[in-house]
């Protein structure tokens, strides 16, 4: 190692010796870091910064084309007084019911995979498939499978479950539940991926010791594995809440035939915004609804960070 300059001549503490050395070598290096992050700043400012400022502005304006006059809270009043908006909010909330099912399925499959039953690697490749397939493709395929005269109902009738053979896609009472089945099917794969990653980092000796002590499978899962997975389960739950409230557009767009149908039975908030912006050309209304959705997602960022920290701490 070279001799380093005496750190005491530099007033600020916390500089690493490496940096001190670099600073003495090259005065312009003070600006180098900013040069490296400049492209990032520019990109984020354009794709996130600009829209997040303008969205608030637009929500107070009657935008026709590219701009328009200020109208105060009129857009918000309009959105909040529209029954379609509240219906779409309700649909997003109904989708939250899928989360417990997703967690149970993901836990069961990931723990079984973790036990490395014969062929677990093949099973793993297969159960990840739903997450590799694109949502629109899956939605198109499932839509055909769940048609009234489709294969799903054929199987149900063959099993003697005629009362279960519903009009999955065409009935406005059932369509959103069909979307939910589709979401559970795909998002559980994400849960399995996440949980398995966590399980593979567990200390196996503890589980092995419990086994040798005569603990049953349930006891091992309940008392040893699950407590160590609390962090990752919580993280998955929060991520899923964010998904259900703000990232289900592709599912409902295809299943609802691009109209949120049948009727308005599969309209979600994202689709409401899409409709206001593209179909009815009312950017002001779309902006007001976007602001409301943004505020909800900001409120969810804190539990998300907390859960991620908890998950990381447990892992460490």
């Amino acid at each position: 190692m070279q001799a380093r300059p005496d750190p005491s001549i530099f007033p600020r503490r916390g500089f690493t010796a490496r940096f001190v050395q670099r600073r003495t070598m090259n005065a312009s290096s003070r600006f180098t870091p900013y040069l490296y992050v400049l492209p990032l700043l520019a990109l984020l400012a354009f794709v996130f910064g600009y829209p997040l400022v303008r969205i608030f502005e637009f929500s107070f304006k009657m935008v026709r084309g590219v701009d328009g006059p200020w109208i105060g809270l009129r857009n918000y009043e309009l959105v909040l007084s529209q029954s379609l908006f509240w219906e779409s909010v309700l649909h997003n909330l109904q989708l939250l019911l899928a989360i417990p099912a997703m967690i149970v399925i993901s836990l069961l499959v990931s723990i079984l995979l973790y036990e490395r039953v014969a062929g677990w690697k093949v099973y793993r490749v297969i159960v990840f498939v739903p997450f590799v397939l694109a949502i629109p493709i899956i939605a198109v395929v499932m839509k055909r499978m769940f048609q009234f005269s489709g294969p799903v109902n054929e199987v149900l009738r063959w099993l003697g479950l005629d009362f279960m053979a519903l009009d999955w896609i065409g009935s406005s009472d059932v369509a959103l539940w069909t979307v939910m089945i589709l979401i559970i099917w795909r998002e559980s794969a994400l849960g399995i991926i996440l949980f398995l990653a966590r399980l593979l980092s567990l200390d196996e000796s503890l589980i092995e010791a419990a086994r040798l002590e005569g603990a049953s499978w349930w006891q091992r899962v309940w008392y040893i594995i699950l407590p160590q997975m609390r962090g990752v389960i919580e993280f998955y739950a929060v991520v899923s809440v964010i998904t259900m409230l703000s990232a289900v557009f592709a599912y409902v767009y295809v299943v609802g035939g691009g109209r949120g149908g049948p009727g308005t039975s599969t309209v979600v908030v994202e689709f409401y915004i899409f409709n206001a912006l593209i179909r009815t050309s009312l950017p002001g209304i779309a902006a007001a609804a976007s602001v409301l959705l943004f505020l909800v997602s900001v409120a969810l960022i804190f539990p998300l960070f907390r859960a991620r920290r908890l998950a990381n701490e447990q892992e460490a």
Partner: peptide
């Protein structure tokens, strides 16, 4: 940067579209 990971894409769409 990390917070932006949680912002839903739909929120950015209206101003960018305009």
């Amino acid at each position: 940067n990390t917070s932006l990971m949680a912002v839903p894409p739909i929120v950015m769409i209206v101003p960018l579209f305009v």
